[in-house]
Design a protein around this nucleic acid. Structure first.
Lengths: 211, 211
DNA sequence: GCAGCAATTGAACAGGTGTTCAATAGTTGC
DNA sequence: GCAACTATTGAACACCTGTTCAATTGCTGC
């Protein structure tokens, strides 16, 4: 009944990959509502039905895109940390700068993450991806903080809370940068995170907290 | 052509208010997609067309809800600050605790804010509401920090950046609490913000930054 | 060369969306 | 009591959504 012109038959893996890429491109351009099955399939140069052939759900497609994006962001931050030197303090600074660098704090990135957050409450699959990526992210920060503590010989501090705090500040700064890029500069953001780390080094954040 | 049974004629102001309330309820229950004109009108016990009679747009309806929610959240934080005593340090703590208190860090609140963020890129109207509310929020934090500086006689620090940093940390903690309430407790969150303030008091965050 | 398998198609379906607009009906002023 | 005004209605419109499925095709093993 149909008359398909040029059918490019692909390996399932290859096709999945290209569909995920198209999904990411759509999400960047206009968030969740720009990543409908029709728009994604159009972008991938493929028919509507193919998506449901390779992914059980629209939800599963978005989740796959989520996993890829989260991994990429983590890689950028981690590479920046490694490239910043051996000093754990410098590495932390590099990590922060990487996370807030160009390409991650633009409108496009925000649209993607908002899309994921939107689905987070509705989809157990998305929630799972979020938890996994978050745990990995914080574990790295904790690792760097631990090395900082050892090498600088600072007083003991609550490692878990310090990591959570830095992670939260990073997220908050990132969010505000995306929502309104004029509020502060990248350098100022890095400086603020650095102040937090400096505070830790000076023993602000000790285990036995007495306010 | 229609046969409306009981038509409750209302003042435009009253009707607008009840439509905004219904919108907020819908947003809480299921985010943006649960706040369609049909669902909102159903919740308000009113016909579809009435929304477009009182609001020029669906967008305008959401923006009105945004303004109301933002004001309410600010009032909660500010009241908590006032109730915490006269000491600026205590007031800051109160402010933070208020912002992270029950009723603001649940799934419902997150759904609302995600909805606003989603529209932030598309709608100039929403963007306007966001900027206004953000400015007000940070101005209050800055004011409290200024009093802290004066009364405690701490070294001069960059007021603007300190306020932005605290605001960002607050936002980041709030976001993570909403996404996963098990990561840390409210008390721990308050403690983290307090550590930031403590760091400021100890001169971590001076104007002339030398890392 | 041909059979079997699976990648691919697109029409069809049931349902949703925001906006428009003629028709209806409460309310107010005279 | 009646006219003018306007809050309110809901059907209609054009368009979008995710999923399904028979039909079509390209590839692989034999």
């Amino acid at each position: 009944m149909q008359t398909p012109r040029t059918q490019q038959r692909q390996t399932p893996d290859t096709r999945r990959k290209s569909l995920i890429d198209a999904t990411i491109a759509c999400l960047k351009s206009g968030g969740l509502e720009a990543a409908s099955v029709r728009k994604v399939s159009a972008r991938a140069g493929v028919s509507v039905g193919l998506i449901n052939h390779h992914f059980s759900n629209h939800e599963a497609l978005i989740a796959a895109a989520y996993a890829e994006i989260a991994e990429a962001l983590f890689a950028v931050s981690w590479d920046a940390a490694q490239a910043a030197g051996n000093n754990p303090r410098d590495q932390l600074r590099g990590f922060v700068r990487g996370a807030l660098s160009l390409g991650t704090t633009d409108t496009e990135s925000l649209k993607i993450w908002i899309a994921f957050w939107t689905m987070n409450e509705r989809s157990a699959l998305i929630k799972q991806v979020h938890d996994e990526s978050n745990r990995e992210h914080r574990k790295k920060i904790e690792h760097l903080l631990q090395r900082l503590q050892q090498e600088r010989g600072v007083k003991a501090f609550d490692m878990r809370l310090a990591a959570i705090g830095l992670s939260a500040m990073l997220d908050g700064l990132w969010l505000e940068m995306c929502l309104d890029p004029h509020t502060f500069s990248v350098d100022e953001a890095v400086q603020m995170c650095d102040s937090w780390i400096e505070g830790i080094c000076r023993g602000t954040f000790q285990v036995t907290s007495d306010a």
